[in-house]
């Protein structure tokens, strides 16, 4: 006796509905999964495309993104060697950090890690001359350039451009993105006709226009 032997067909009275349900079950058992899966994959793919459009059109906040040139702001009367200072610039939600290294170099960066947005700390005791350290996943940034030296962050830190007056007070005058030098960032925000910028003196509007369109 084998289990595959034909069994007497079900009595006809509830037969039709039961038969339909059975067919449904068979169809649902193994036959619909891949089609549904393909539809889900197509939906996910569309979501990713929409996400790309949203990102490129500016849904993500970048440090220092605001209308017009940022105002100049005094952040400290004095920063001693080996010290750091947390401040907010240019907006209230733009966390930033200013560092004075042992050799007197003054540098300012966004304090938001480019990996997953933890707070970046100044650690004077790490590395040969101190470094900017993200405790979340051991991300390490060079304090001189803001570039990534170790860990998972994908980009260097955006910069905050700091200047020091003769009396030792420190002022923030602008920002630069991860991919920019401080000068490029300054010129982007304040216009190219400033001293040191490519458009200075020439005053050519054409040059200004191309430069502007290259960097948002």
């Amino acid at each position: 006796m084998s289990v595959t032997d034909p069994q007497p067909p079900a009595p006809d009275a509830p037969g039709d509905a039961a038969q339909e349900a059975l067919r449904d079950r068979i169809a649902a058992d193994s036959l619909t999964t891949r089609r549904d899966y393909l539809r889900i994959v197509a939906t996910v793919s569309g979501g990713l495309a929409v996400g790309g459009v949203a990102v490129a059109s500016g849904i993500l906040h970048r440090h220092g993104d605001s209308e017009g040139a940022p105002e100049v702001k005094k952040i400290a009367d004095r920063i001693e060697r080996g010290e750091s200072l947390a401040f907010r610039y240019p907006g209230e939600e733009d966390r930033a950090i200013a560092v004075r290294m042992e050799d007197g170099t003054l540098a300012g960066y966004s304090a938001v890690c480019t990996h997953l947005a933890c707070a970046v700390l100044w650690r004077n005791d790490r590395g040969s001359e101190g470094e900017l350290y993200c405790p979340c996943h051991e991300g390490i940034f060079d304090a001189r350039t803001g570039e990534v030296t170790a860990g998972p962050p994908p980009r260097g830190l955006p910069k905050v451009i700091l200047v020091e007056q003769v009396d030792g007070s420190v002022w923030a005058i602008g920002t630069a993105r991860s991919g920019e030098s401080a000068l490029e960032g300054f010129c982007r925000q304040n216009g190219d006709d400033r001293p040191g910028c490519p458009g200075f003196g020439a005053g050519g509007p054409g040059l200004k226009a191309t430069e502007r369109s290259e960097r948002t």
Partner: peptide
């Protein structure tokens, strides 16, 4: 895309 946007490109 996210990386390039955040880097200003």
């Amino acid at each position: 895309v996210v990386d390039e946007w955040m880097a200003g490109d």
